[in-house]
């Protein structure tokens, strides 16, 4: 090719045109790069949580559920409003660990949404998937009612949401900031990593119970109260 460039005037025209166009391309990329700070969609701390919608059982029936409706896009670490955080549990009605965890999840849902809790409100959502055995909407209803849960159960028996959220097993828990950024993911490689919205970097959460595993309640208590003004 270099030989062609020396000998051929046509190659020279191609080379000059390429220099002009490549310069334009990189100039465009630089302008975009310096004026925006993209956040990828995903489920690791610091990523934007994938959006989803579907039907959810709230105790009275199956209602339309839209995850975006829970978000407060204008939230920032210095916000002083009452924007709620979102805790999501991916569960399977046939999963033993999910059955065992049901009572404490119910307690957390009440504890962190009540006025007794001095941090910001945390909205709980369960996403019911089908990993272990055949499940159905009536099983989901029975599971929710028998555990006296007060939060909605989203039907994900077709596993559309669970695939988007890259959940490989149940139960899996996520804590999402009011602006839709994932703050903590129980199933990440290092379970104790949380997202610091001020520093815009991950940091290590403290293990209160010393069991080498961060539970959802530990993540909620350390992450939601980290920012100024976000109290009820």
């Amino acid at each position: 090719m270099m030989d062609n460039l020396y000998r051929s005037e046509e190659a020279s025209a191609r080379g000059e045109a390429a220099i002009i166009v490549i310069s334009l391309f990189f100039a465009g990329l630089l302008v975009v790069a310096f004026t925006s700070n993209p956040i990828s969609t995903g489920t690791q701390p610091g990523e934007r949580a994938p959006l989803f919608s579907g039907k959810a059982y709230d105790g009275n029936g199956w209602q339309t559920f839209v995850f975006d409706d829970l978000l407060t896009p204008e939230w920032s670490p210095n916000s002083t409003g009452d924007a709620p955080w979102i805790a999501i549990e991916f569960m399977d009605t046939d999963c033993g660990h999910c059955k065992t965890a049901a009572e404490k999840v119910g307690n957390w849902a009440q504890q962190y949404s009540s006025t007794v809790w001095d941090g910001p409100e945390v909205i709980f959502i369960a996403v019911a998937v089908e990993f272990v055995a055949d499940s159905s909407r009536s099983e989901i209803q029975t599971f929710r009612d028998s555990n006296e849960h007060t939060f909605p159960y989203v039907d994900d028996l077709d596993r559309e949401v669970v695939d988007k959220w890259q959940v490989g097993g149940t139960p899996a828990y996520f804590l999402v900031q009011p602006d839709g950024i994932v703050a903590w993911n129980s199933a990440q490689t290092v379970n104790s990593i949380g997202w610091d919205a001020n520093a815009e970097e991950v940091f290590a959460l403290s293990d209160y119970t010393g069991d080498q595993y961060i539970e959802l309640n530990e993540a909620i208590e350390q992450l939601t109260k980290k920012y100024g003004g976000e109290t009820q």
């Binding site: 334009l24 465009g28 975009v32 925006s36 700070n37 993209p38 934007r48 896009p73």
Partner: peptide, 18 residues
Amino acid sequence: FTVSAHTLWMHNKLSEGG
């Protein structure tokens, strides 16, 4: 090219939550 670059910028801005 410029309008495509603008849509790339929009893509990034929207991912920031704007």
